[in-house]
Every structure is written in C-alpha cells, then in structure tokens.
Nucleic acid binder design. Structure first.
Length: 585
RNA sequence: GUGCCCGUAGCUCAAUCGGAUAGAGCACCAGCCUUCUAAGCUGGGGGUUACAGGUUCGAUUCCUGUCGGGCACGCCA
C-alpha cells in the first residue's frame, strides 16, 4: 500500500463541530455531521447544516443553535472565521495561509496525493465485463470495462483492498453454440455444406477460427457430418435451422459425432476468444487480478454444494420435473429454476455458487457491474445470498446503461444478431483509448450515454478529453521552459498567492481527496471526470490572466508551485480514469 | 399488462442521498494572439426542474396520481 501524508481540513472541521455539538446534546446520541463545500465564496469554504437538523429535537431556533455551536467551537490554527447565515447554516472560512501552505503536501506526496484510508483496507471485489467469450467485445462491454476499471482504481486510491475479477462463462450453452458454429464453418472449408443455422454465430471471426483449425489440422475433424441432422425434422434438412430446440439437437449430434474432438474445438474457440478479449482489454488499459472460470464451479463441486445447501434450508422444490428456488420468499416476482428437467443446472445455479464463493473467499464487499438489461436478475441473486445466510447488502450491483453511438448526428446502428455490431476494438481505433475511456465515464453510469464519435475524435476545444490533457501539457511546457527542479518548489514561499483565482485554485486542489472519496463512496467515476474538467477550466483561465515566468523570483516560484501542483492532480485524476497525461500536444 | 430506471436551458448533462440565488459544456451573439501552446480565455442572453397534488423551516431530490421515454418479464446467458 502506498503511503500518503497531508492534512484533511474537512475531517478536521467535522471534529471541531463534533466537539461543539457535545455541549448541546447527550454524548450517547450519535449525530451525523455533514460538511459540504459551498458554492458561493461569500458562504465561506465549508458549510454545515447541523443547527437545522438539531432544531426539532432541541425545540430551538436553528440560528440560535448555530450561535451556540459556534461559541462552543474549539480554536483551530486553520480556521479563519465562522458565521451563521441564512436559515441557520454554519459557514466556515479556511485560512488563506492554510491553503497556500497546502501546495507542499501535493508536491511531496506526488502520485499518492488524493489517496486516503477511507476504505480501511477492506477487502472489496469488483466484478466487471464478464462477457461471454463467444465473440469480440462490443461498445456496450466497453462502457462496463471503463467504469469498472476506473471505479476499481478509485476504490484502491480511497484505501480499499481491491480485487478486479472477470467471470468467464465457459460452461454454458452459448459456448456450445460457438463451438458448433465454428465446426460448421470448418466443414464448409472441407466442402461439406450444411445450411448455417440462423441463430448460430454469424460473425466473420467464426470463419477465421475455422480457417485456423483447417490450416493446422486439415480434414482431421470431418466426422460423419451426414449424422449431424439426425433427429431433426425433414424441413431442417432443406432450410436452415432457426429454433432453439433444433439448435440444441444439432449441438447434441455434434457432441456425439465428434466425441473427444468436440472438446478440442470447444477449448480451441474458448482459448482463442478469451485471449482476444484479454488482449483487447489490455490495450484499453483494463486488467484483471482474477479470471474466474464458471466451469471450475462445476468441476470443484461448488454448484452441487450450493444447491445442496439451499435444499437443506428448504428453499427448493420439485415441479414439472425441474428444481425450483423459492426466490419469491425474498421479493422476486416468481420462483426460478436451478436445475432443468434434463438434469442440467441453469446459469442461475452456477451464479448462486459463484456469489457464495465470493464471500467464502473473504470479500467483505462485492460489487457487480452489470448491463442495465440484467436488472430483473438482481432480486433472485440477492435472494439466494440471503437464503444461504449471507447479508445481501454486501453485494452491490451497479447497473450500467447502454452507450449509443452517434456519427454525424445520427445513431450508429447496433445489431448483435446479425453480427454487425461496432466492436470495442473498432471504437478504440477510431477515437483512441483516451477519448474512449474518458467519454465512457463522463456520465453517471446508470444514465444512457450518447457517445458522439465525431466529438471524441475532434482535436478541438469542444472535446473534454483534450481540454483536460491540454491543461496538463501547458503546465509541462511552462515548467520545461523554466528549466528548474520541481522538487525545489516544495519550499517555495507561497504567501504571495492571494488573488481570487489563485485562492480558488488552491481550494480546488485541496478538494481532490474528498472528490476521490466521494466517487468511491457513491461508486461514481463520473465525479472525477467532472472535477477534472472544472480544474482544467480554472487553470486555463489562470493561464490566460497571469504570467508565471516573471522576473521576481519569489512570485515566479510561488506560481510555479501552484501550477506544478495542478499538473500533479490532473495527472493523478486522469490516471484514475485510465487516460494519459501528455507533456506535449 | 406487471416490475425497475428516467424526464432539469434549443442540445448533451451536473447538482456532494432534503439545503442558500438550480450549475457546466455545446450552439448563438460580441471581443482577446509581435508576450510561458488560441486544442485557450473574457463578456452576454437563455429555466414554472414533464404535469397535478401531498409531506416540512426548506423539494430537482421523498410519497401519490397522470403523461412521455428506456429496459426487463425463458427450464437463454
């Protein structure tokens, strides 16, 4: 764990108010003291609504309570003055000297500035992407990847012990469909033509994998294809298969005909797709600590174990030949099947085992980042956890809404069935990693995202990514021309930084750790993106109004200390979002 | 039809879980480069927070209803 060391004014003021509050209320009564940054300068730097919250229990006028609280406030070297305002707000003014002297903490802590012990090293797992390894990642996965990766970085900075995990759905029917699809394409290469099912994987990458198998093994996997259509209605022999039942029959036939060779093709396509996925994500700046195999849950008997546990607790029953979980006991709309009539466990069954296993591995908090289309799935998973005696609140599910691409002001079409979707790789190639990562987290994750491709590509002031990066590059450029050591600025006397712009910037820099903490608390990376835009904006304004490389050395060094600190925080913030901070643009 | 999410400036979105005069960017209008990067800055207009009630010191935020949009309602994953 990285070390950090700097004062936390907000926490300090909360402590003062807490001391003060003890004079008015019984010590046993826990009061949540909330301190917020003010929006207007004449309201001070921090504001507290404690007096208004106490008005009812104390049966007193809020302004009167505020005065009492202020009188009982311990002295502090950081506190300039305190005022009662409005309906009973307590406004606190941070001393200018405290702001000015804060710069050295930023310059000393460098990349650890912004870190905190808010998370208290709590073991937390973030599971995200977890796309079926049945084809390339598309732009929808991209958003989950960007949000998951950024959130993980933010949580780590806020002092959590974070584990990033990708759940690999390598056991299900979808993998069988991909295996079959690839084999059929392979047969085509060997001049065995069976009408390609409409509901199989149509993408070009399937043909690519078939070619790879063909090149490596020639005709080795051409086994009695004439048996493939056994059990299928006459019609399927002349027209392409397009129902689930028929597709499942094809898969069953393929397994029978291929025997062990089916396993080979299955493993080949899985390895191929997973490798492609991992590579794609790595180039997107997204990496995982664990790739957790769904198949391993079956191999290690964890699915059977979890189901057995539910059975012992009487949450299962038989109906229509299947085994059902009583999820309605936990608020779900209907009960859910965990084991099908044919003996196969459902995806839900392995998911129960998976989530049970997460907590067995010691995670104190688990976050799942899911596409919003899975929201109906939440009650049954939480219900299963509860049934297993676990606290469902320890599982947080963050829903991510779809990203809709716009090109030239028009929606870019998306269709997964035909295979004509925009892949994450194509998006990266078109707009670049930095723009993609930033755009994905610019909006609250549970909101739809309109992704403007033209804007993301544009090298103009309209593009927020470049706007922030440009601020970073500008500082670098000035510091390069100064030609001194940034570390020497730690001792600069910053008392000359007194203009409203400078004091505003100083406060903005002080806010950064609180921003990271808030983003962590609310699972909201977009908070960081907004903050960076605001900081860049205040910097650009400062840049245009003030010269830094002035002849007067004390002033020069003070201003350079300020912009060097700004640069550090821009870099730290961009790093949290997986965006580069270039020195030249 | 039932459940969940959403509705804020012309457009895209914020608003620190109920706080002060609801904020940015884009677009529009008017200005700023012989000076550290104009991928920048300064100023201006723009709102009954979809609508109607309710809760209280105080509501974009919480509750109810209406309208409008999205998603989900498989022994798929």
């Amino acid at each position: 764990m990285t070390s950090f060391d700097y004062p936390n004014f907000k926490a300090h003021f909360i402590e003062l108010l807490c001391e003060s509050a003890k004079t008015l209320i019984a010590s046993g009564d826990a009061v949540q003291i909330e301190l917020v940054r003010t929006k207007q300068a004449n309201h001070g730097d921090y504001s507290c609504n404690l007096a208004m919250q106490l008005a009812k229990p104390l049966h007193k006028n809020p302004r009167e309570i505020a005065s009492l609280l202020i009188n009982a406030l311990p002295t502090s070297p950081y506190l300039d003055k305190v005022e009662v305002a409005g309906a009973g707000f307590i406004n606190l003014f941070l001393k200018s000297s405290a702001k000015q002297q804060f710069l050295r903490h930023i310059l000393q802590n460098k990349e650890t500035f912004g870190h905190s012990d808010f998370g208290q090293a709590k073991k937390i797992q973030v599971e995200f992407v977890s796309a079926n390894p049945t084809g390339p990642l598309h732009v929808g996965h991209g958003r989950g990847a960007a949000i998951g990766a950024s959130l993980s970085s933010i949580l780590a900075a806020a002092g959590f012990n974070v584990s990033r995990e990708f759940y690999v759905n390598d056991a299900g029917r979808q993998m069988d469909i991909l295996t079959l699809s690839t084999w059929l394409r392979y047969l085509e290469l060997n001049n065995v033509h069976i009408l390609f099912p409409l509901n199989a994987y149509q993408g070009e990458y399937v043909k690519t994998m078939a070619r790879q198998i063909h090149q490596a093994h020639a005709q080795r996997y051409v086994h009695q294809p004439e048996l493939l259509l056994n059990g299928l209605p006459e019609i399927a022999q002349e027209a392409a298969v397009d129902t689930d039942e028929q597709l499942d029959q094809l898969i069953a036939n393929a397994k029978k005909v291929l025997g062990q060779d089916y396993v080979y093709i299955h493993n080949f396509v899985l390895t191929e797709q997973l490798g492609d996925c991992r590579n794609d994500l790595m180039e997107f700046g997204v990496e995982f600590d664990t790739w957790f195999s769904e198949q391993s849950l079956f191999d290690n008997g964890l699915v059977a174990h979890a189901i057995e546990l539910l059975k012992k607790k009487h949450y299962l029953y038989q109906q229509d030949g299947a085994t059902w979980f009583r999820s309605t006991d936990f608020g779900d709309e209907k009960d859910r099947v965990v084991q099908r009539e044919n003996g196969q466990f459902t995806y839900f069954a392995s998911d129960i085992a998976y989530h049970f296993n997460k907590f067995e591995r010691g995670f104190e908090q688990v976050i799942n980042i899911w596409g919003a289309d899975h929201h109906g799935y939440i009650p049954r998973v939480k219900g299963a956890l509860q049934a297993l005696g676990l606290d469902p609140h320890k599982l947080e599910i963050a829903l991510v809404q779809f990203a809709v691409l716009y090109r030239a002001g028009k929606k870019a079409p998306m269709s997964t069935r035909s295979g004509e979707f925009v892949t994450l790789r194509e998006l990266r190639q078109e707009v670049g990693k930095d723009a993609a990562r930033f755009f994905y987290v610019m909006r609250k994750s549970d909101q739809h995202l309109d992704f403007d491709l033209d804007l993301a590509k544009s090298q103009s002031n309209d593009n927020p990514v470049y706007y922030v990066q440009y601020a970073h590059a500008r500082v670098s450029s000035v510091l390069a021309q100064w030609d001194g050591e940034v570390d020497d600025l730690i001792v600069a006397d910053t008392v000359v930084l007194t203009s409203p712009v400078e004091l505003g910037l100083l406060q903005k820099l002080i806010d950064f750790p609180d921003i990271v903490e808030m983003a962590a608390k609310e699972f909201s990376p977009h908070v960081v993106a907004f903050y960076l835009r605001e900081l860049a904006s205040e910097f650009h304004s400062y840049y245009n109004s003030t010269r830094f490389l002035v002849p007067e050395i004390p002033i020069q060094h003070a201003r350079l200390a300020l912009i060097a600190s700004i640069r550090q925080i821009l870099k730290n913030g961009l790093t949290l979002l997986g965006v580069n901070a270039p020195d030249k643009m």
